[in-house]
Design a protein around this nucleic acid. Structure first.
Lengths: 231, 231
DNA sequence: CGTATAGTTGACCGGCCTCAATGGGTGTGG
DNA sequence: CCACACCCATTGAGGCCGGTCAACTATACG
């Protein structure tokens, strides 16, 4: 788990000075602009990417241009966990905002049989899968409003764990177009949903910062239960 | 990986005599009727369930009765992998058809630090997640027909791996209602989609057996690429 | 052979998509 | 520091996919 770090608006502008993870390797920091490819599927990369600041996503493209984001990653997450464990990846990874990435050579994982490290990686894998299952529930059985509310609750919870959400407010610079590709909607409808959540005085979103006004009602609307996030 | 076993219609009526897995523990076989609970979320079970015959599913219920199936399991799969690895489960497991389950005491996993076993379990975990991600893509960006076609392709591929699909035909006794809960549709619409696929002469489905008439066109329709299933 | 469950079909409705235009905010260059 | 340009957010009108409700038929099982 990440050491809590005070959330500050400058986090996106300047790389964090120190970010301790459950496996603290020396990492080479790299600043990446928004909407930039980090990993292409099928490639065999030689470094894994630890997200230090900003938001990235895993996604898959269909032939006719349709895109589905399968995971949104927050600081502390390993972007290309599958590539790290299996040597290659079935999904692509891209930045959603300006990001600071920490590059970890894959050679550090290949040879070691450290049981503590293995357990930490397995825990991350299980957590990623638990989040994916909840996304399946959202996409299959929650309507646009509930689904969006659920994602906002999930992000608040995950960002709070790494000290990037104070109270019920966090930085969210993801475009509505990208949110749409995560929620299985169109950007037009995401906009209507967000306007709706604003009108209901459930959230406040402006200038790249989201504030949950009424957490109780938002959680109830989304039927959000953070149990799946707790390992 | 499972040793290939000739697919036979009797598999659902009589437990298979031998089914070798990548970890072959002696298991206690149990015959379970269809639509039966195997695992309830939050519980701390003392046995893991290896599916030997039939189909089970992982699912989650919403408060108002909506249900979303997050995984369909075929022979050779471990139904409650999360419970096995984490001690408790965030999802429920239920049978979709009559099933033969092999019960493995959790104590066999808790103490051992067998690296071969750990690698096998991690491979299963990665595969489950890869399938979940593809479901996210289907639910988010494929319409009803494409989504159904994709699931039928996925099941054919997975069943062929364990010798339960000869050519392009396999036993499928899952009800349209349950298929709907997996596909994020209603049973009425699943029926229309299946009628459509039949009318297009892509599949044949009768008496609990599905036959893919035109595999090339079905794969193309679903944009099915089995790469994600290959570990 | 009767009963229950599952599949099939029709009519109508609504959430979300498509197309299109306008407004607003942010970054950049002069 | 301002002006421009581009990207993003917002809003309206109309259409379609899939949902809802309801009835009927077929199949499985005792």
């Amino acid at each position: 788990m990440l050491t809590a770090r005070p959330a500050d608006m400058a986090a996106y502008a300047t790389p964090p000075k120190s970010l301790t993870t459950d496996f603290d390797f020396p990492v080479r920091e790299r600043l990446v602009p928004k909407q930039n490819e980090v990993l292409v599927p099928g490639a065999t990369p030689d470094v894994a990417h630890l997200l230090l600041a900003g938001h990235t996503c895993r996604y898959r493209m269909l032939q006719d241009g349709r895109r589905q984001i399968t995971a949104i990653l927050v600081p502390g997450d390993i972007c290309d966990l599958e590539a790290l464990l299996a040597g290659r990846s079935s999904y692509a990874v891209s930045t959603l905002t300006r990001c600071t990435l920490g590059e970890i050579p894959l050679s550090r994982f290949a040879s070691t049989h450290d049981p503590v490290l293995a357990a930490a990686l397995q825990r991350r894998l299980r957590r990623d899968e638990a989040i994916a299952r909840e996304w399946i529930v959202s996409l299959g059985r929650r309507d646009g409003i509930e689904r969006t509310a659920h994602l906002l609750c999930e992000l608040r919870w995950r960002l709070a764990e790494v000290g990037q959400a104070t109270d019920d407010s966090y930085e969210l610079r993801i475009t509505q177009h990208d949110l749409a590709d995560a929620l299985g909607l169109t950007s037009v409808h995401v906009n209507r949903v967000l306007m709706n959540l604003r009108a209901e005085r459930l959230i406040h979103l402006k200038g790249g910062r989201l504030t949950i006004i009424d957490r109780t009602r938002l959680k109830h609307l989304a039927q959000f239960d953070p149990a799946y996030l707790v390992q």
